[in-house]
């Protein structure tokens, strides 16, 4: 099990080592000490390994992740797991702005709160935030699910497309073209599956969630919609 101390090893060296792992490597569990808020730690991974980071990380930790399982035992800066394709990123603390931005797959779990623009432009990722999320979350969200156990800030889901939003607490306000939608069985199943994947099987009452999605009135340019923006 490689142990990397970022006070001893340059970040560039660490990332390159992670990128150049052979598919049959037995170095599948990496422990990273003293991240000290450095940016771009463990980004661009493309192997089914697990990476555990002992401390707080800066911007874009696990950015563009594929396949890997990255655990951050601390808080994460802006854009954690941005544009993730697959794999799992688990933040044990809080996450800053734009968590999971534009991500196309995999799962992001945040134990604490996530800041503004959580899931902005998301394109297929599943995000589960156990705390609350900030304003403008799921802005222009295209696909995937965003599940929030706490509250959501202003303008949730502004201009969103087909992403599905589940919020247990209050929503300060909905953004343009975002509406509350009925929870049907298929949505309860979906939500159950996501909560289970996030390790919350049976702990949470699905009945407490509301679903939000696109009213689809902005899908075509039309003069009558001009006031919506």
């Amino acid at each position: 099990m490689p142990n990397v101390d970022l006070r001893q090893t340059a970040l560039r060296e660490l990332n390159q080592a992670l990128h150049h792992l052979r598919p049959d490597t037995n170095e599948t569990h990496w422990l990273i000490a003293n991240p000290d808020g450095r940016h771009a730690i463990a980004c661009g991974l493309d192997a089914a390994i697990s990476v555990e980071i002992e401390g707080n990380v800066g911007y874009y930790c696990a950015g563009m992740n594929k396949l890997a399982n990255v655990v951050i035992n601390g808080n994460a800066g802006v854009g954690v797991a941005e544009n993730m394709m697959s794999g799992l990123v688990h933040v044990r603390g809080d996450a800053s702005q734009a968590a999971g931005a534009t991500a196309q797959g995999g799962m992001l779990v945040v134990e604490g709160n996530a800041g503004a623009r959580c899931g902005i432009s998301m394109k297929g990722i599943d995000i589960v935030v156990k705390g609350s999320i900030g304003h403008m979350s799921a802005f222009m969200a295209q696909a995937g699910t965003l599940t929030v156990l706490g509250d959501a800030g202003e303008a949730l889901g502004d201009s969103l497309y087909e992403a599905k939003l589940f919020v247990r607490g209050s929503v300060k306000s909905l953004g343009a073209d975002c509406v509350e939608k009925p929870m049907r069985d298929e949505h309860r199943e979906l939500l159950h599956a996501k909560l289970t994947a996030a390790g919350l099987n049976g702990e949470i009452d699905i009945g407490e969630f509301k679903r939000y999605g696109s009213a689809r009135t902005l899908y075509h340019f039309h003069v009558d919609n001009a006031g919506a923006y």
Partner: peptide, 28 residues
């Protein structure tokens, strides 16, 4: 649908962030 793309990058604002974004792209 009529697609409207974003005019701002979703995960950074301003030159200081741009520098960090570039670092990420270079690291990747």
């Amino acid at each position: 649908i009529d697609q409207r793309s974003a005019s701002r990058h979703p995960d950074w604002t301003g030159p200081d962030d741009l520098e960090i974004k570039m670092e990420e792209l270079r690291e990747i």
